[in-house]
């Protein structure tokens, strides 16, 4: 009898103490989680692919709730679920779904070893941010790619790689999820997220040099010198020249390719277009910084 009593009391005491400890811990270390995060996560595909740029679907759900609190769901897109899923998410959060076009990262520099002569040797930590702070880089261009590959390191999807021949990063458009990590990682803001466009076709000014024309002309064979010929030839007002640099607004561009012909420095590239008819000379020497070969039909439509 006595033995049983002792056993019951001691076990009961242990149970009670544990319960108190558990209670205190659960109160003290309680993590408040927004109920909407779980709801949003439920409608997501649960593929945890990371294509949205967040660590898995739960991370994306949290980001969506945060963005909704901030006022807009813009820029949030589940590449797997696409627009239908995003509409459901928006409904849960009481927001309007922002129709986001699929985007892709574009490296806007074509300063290959041939185009942009090396004037100096950089001898330091192999990191763009540090190289950028050290000096202008190995060339005389203060805006061009430094080639240390911070974007490559930042990419979670193995979608951007250094081309050892050109010394420039190239985006694998199939793999790119437009998460924007590389855009943030680039200290010179060379990489931009642009709408993928029909069949992945788009016109891009492959230069971000804001120096005056003569200076820019000197440092690189394919730099934008802001001559304005492209803007003149454009019938749709898609090209603006600001701070000594041409920029093609993807929303306005109708892909007529006139600017490409007009550019005296081959700075404007037409991406993912089929090869031109023989009457115009194909310019294979000026391969833009991209991966998918322009000759084959691209499979970027969702």
């Amino acid at each position: 009898m006595n033995v049983i009593l002792i056993a019951v009391i001691s076990l009961g005491a242990i149970g009670l103490i544990s319960a108190i400890v558990l209670y205190v811990c659960s109160k003290k270390f309680a993590v408040h989680e927004d109920a909407r995060i779980a709801q949003v996560a439920e409608v997501l595909p649960q593929a945890n692919c990371g294509g949205c740029g967040y660590p898995g679907c739960a991370g994306f759900a949290g980001a969506c709730v945060k963005a909704a609190d901030a006022g807009s769901l813009e820029g949030k897109l589940c590449p797997v679920g696409g627009a239908p899923v995003m509409e459901e998410v928006a409904a849960i959060l009481g927001m309007e779904a922002v129709v986001t076009e699929p985007k892709v990262a574009v490296v806007r520099c074509n300063g290959t070893c041939e185009n942009r002569p090396r004037t100096n040797v950089y001898d330091g930590a192999w990191n763009c941010a540090i190289a950028n702070a050290t000096a202008i880089g190995e060339t005389s261009c203060a805006f061009g790619c430094l080639g240390c590959g911070d974007c490559v390191a930042a990419c979670q999807f193995d979608a951007i790689h250094m081309n050892p021949e050109t010394g420039l990063p190239e985006v694998d458009e199939e793999k790119c999820t437009a998460c924007g990590s590389c855009v943030k990682a680039c200290p010179r803001h060379i990489i931009e997220l642009q709408p993928k466009g029909k069949k992945g076709r788009r016109m891009v000014v492959m230069c971000v040099n804001k120096d005056k024309g003569p200076v820019a002309n000197k440092v690189c064979a394919v730099s934008c010198i802001a001559c304005g010929k492209c803007a003149k030839v454009c019938e749709f007002d898609a090209i603006t020249i600001e701070a000594n640099l041409a920029y093609i607004a993807p929303q306005k561009c109708r892909l007529c390719r006139k600017c490409e012909e007009a550019c005296p420095k081959n700075t404007i590239h037409a991406m993912n277009f089929p090869p031109r008819k023989p009457k115009v000379e194909v310019v294979p020497a000026e391969k833009p910084a991209r991966v998918s070969n322009g000759n084959e039909p691209t499979k970027v439509e969702q």
């Binding site: 540090i130 702070a133 050290t134």
Partner: peptide, 12 residues
């Protein structure tokens, strides 16, 4: 090691 390169980067 390029210690100061990285430390300076961190400091900035």
């Amino acid at each position: 090691r390029y210690l100061l390169d990285y430390i300076r980067y961190g400091k900035t």
